[in-house]
Design a protein around this nucleic acid. Structure first.
Lengths: 339, 339
DNA sequence: CTGAAAGCGCTAACAA
DNA sequence: TTGTTAGCGCTTTCAG
């Protein structure tokens, strides 16, 4: 079928009346080919509409010119943008990217990695589903470089790209504190995630520095973050002065939940949120957020990977990108300004 | 490097003390292998941590168990969700998906397709950058099945998955008309896109049915949709009563532009928008939108593709999925309800 | 039931 | 500068 119509390099060589190797040389623009034969080959290639079979090439060269990326959830705009950035750089380097989602499940993640490895990917960018321990290094062959993305894995030495989670959380909390807010509650999910832990740590540091008792309300899984949960866990006993949400999904759900409770985020209770998103500035009041450079994160991850792929050695590198506090109104400020 | 540590099927066969072919048989659970040898092979596989090389397998079998997807812009939530849906189905079928973005540029699109084809993809799902004419069939080998996604291509017979663009636009317009709004203007971009044309057609049909003059304001490219453009093109001469935005990006930009002009969408001027997105319901007033089943679109595209891949013939099919009018407040309604 | 041998399309030693 | 000859890791006739 495909076979029938796809010319191979042998066909090209025949058509150009040269040897297979000469054709191959032209294809890879190696030196040592007379211009005349090169011409003939190029013409033959054009005439036949020949396209090299990358599978065959990869089989021989032990590489696929493909990298894998595993993310927990592609629907999260943060992730989508990061993928976009990664892909751009990959394309510029002549690589393609195979995308896989783990849904935040380490088992799925593991199985996806195995599939990817079977596809002979040359590198892997992964946002680990669980950073508490190494759940996959054992199935990654030597020679396949790994970059972790957005998360770190305990006790594992691989290149990584993250943001200043702790400091951002601290700054956001400080900002809230600066408004005279005292009973600030942090809302997040999946306590075991690196990002969650770091952000909680930053929040707690800030609270403690102000001699205040931190209050951290975490759900095991995002699906548990409902209006009922908010009413029960956050509002029941001690009414908070302000809320800090620790990631995009939690922000969404908190916003929705609050509305069900007839409260408006930012008006009835000040709110600062992790992760910026389109139209966060169009809400009323406009949401104050920690903006993460998602696309840049993706690009940096790719950059690290391609440096390794091009043979660069050295100890592993941890890139930490700065976030940006975008102060709008939901924190209690009344004019737009950017810190 | 990788080579050194990766056991091959030959190693497995040796370890199990059977022939290569027997090992291969076990790997593909073919019949005709004595249970005893099968056991030996399976043990050897486990012991060695053997993983089949899909590249080699694909080379032989003329397939890669990989499909390609080309989208204009991954950052669009509609697209991200569709990719997610596609990927899920692909995974369930043992396929992986290579993602590429065209940025809406047919040349980039073409070059990405060529790369994908070189990678021996078994199928391609594509949201064409330009549906006015066929810009790529010539480079797709027979045997690689194509499904177009969100768009149709003039005069090309391939499977497709789209939504009821025309009818949705018509219904949205009718709804606005039902509020007594008369001077409704449609705002969109890239007149040549199938989705744009269809939506415009639906809008116009609705206006004409009401004996009203349609007014369509289109920008060549989204980047041109600024507050200045709105002031000049939409508001200068004839003040519209209401706005219908024709896709997600245009909705974003119109919302922002309006604010710059000190107008609030839905309050100062009723607005109905194409494409739902997270928090559209949290805006004030909440946005009335045409909701597209993005993830389902992705899933259906995958389904069509896999039907073809599993040998199903027949003439090409055009799946058209219904959208849902989600009536919130920006259209002029004052209570949430869903049509 | 099993195995030897011939490739899939390409690249790379090694000669000529 | 060229071409011949082996494979990469796997599947698959086709004999045993």
């Amino acid at each position: 079928m495909r076979k029938s119509d796809a010319p191979t390099l042998v066909d090209v060589a025949q058509e150009a009346d040269v040897s297979l190797k000469t054709a191959s040389r032209v294809l890879n623009n190696s030196k040592n080919v007379s211009e005349e034969k090169a011409q003939r080959v190029r013409k033959a290639i054009a005439r036949l509409g020949y396209r090299p079979n990358e599978l065959a090439r990869g089989l021989k060269a032990q590489r696929s010119a493909t990298i894998g990326m595993i993310v927990p959830n592609l629907s999260d705009p943060f992730t989508a943008n990061a993928v976009h950035g990664l892909q751009e750089v990959a394309r510029a380097n002549g690589y393609m990217v195979i995308l896989a989602s783990s849904g935040g499940d380490p088992d799925v993640e593991r199985s996806e990695i195995q599939t990817l490895v079977g596809r002979q990917i040359d590198g892997l960018v992964i946002a680990p589903a669980d950073g508490r321990r190494d759940t996959f290094s054992d199935i990654i062959p030597e020679g396949v470089h790994v970059v972790t993305f957005d998360e770190l894995i305990r006790n594992v030495k691989v290149d990584s790209v993250t943001v200043t989670n702790r400091r951002s959380a601290q700054e956001a909390t400080n900002h809230l504190l600066g408004h005279g807010l005292r009973k600030i509650v942090a809302i997040g999910a999946r306590a075991y995630l690196y990002t969650c832990k770091e952000r909680v740590a930053g929040y707690e540091a800030s609270m403690k520095a102000a001699s205040l008792a931190p209050r951290v309300c975490l759900v095991k899984h995002e699906s548990l973050l409902t209006a009922e949960w908010l009413a029960e866990e956050v509002f029941r006993n001690q009414k908070p002065d302000a809320i800090l949400t620790l990631n995009w999904v939690c922000t969404m759900l908190t916003l929705r939940g609050l509305r069900q409770l007839k409260k408006t985020a930012g008006r009835d209770i000040p709110l600062f949120s992790f992760d910026d998103f389109d139209l966060a500035d169009m809400l009323t009041p406009a949401l104050s957020v920690v903006h993460q450079p998602a696309e840049m994160l993706g690009r940096e991850a790719a950059r690290l990977l391609f440096e390794r792929l091009s043979g660069k050695g050295g100890s592993c590198r941890a890139i930490v990108l700065p976030t940006e506090l975008i102060i709008r109104q939901s924190c209690g400020c009344h004019r737009d300004r950017t810190d």
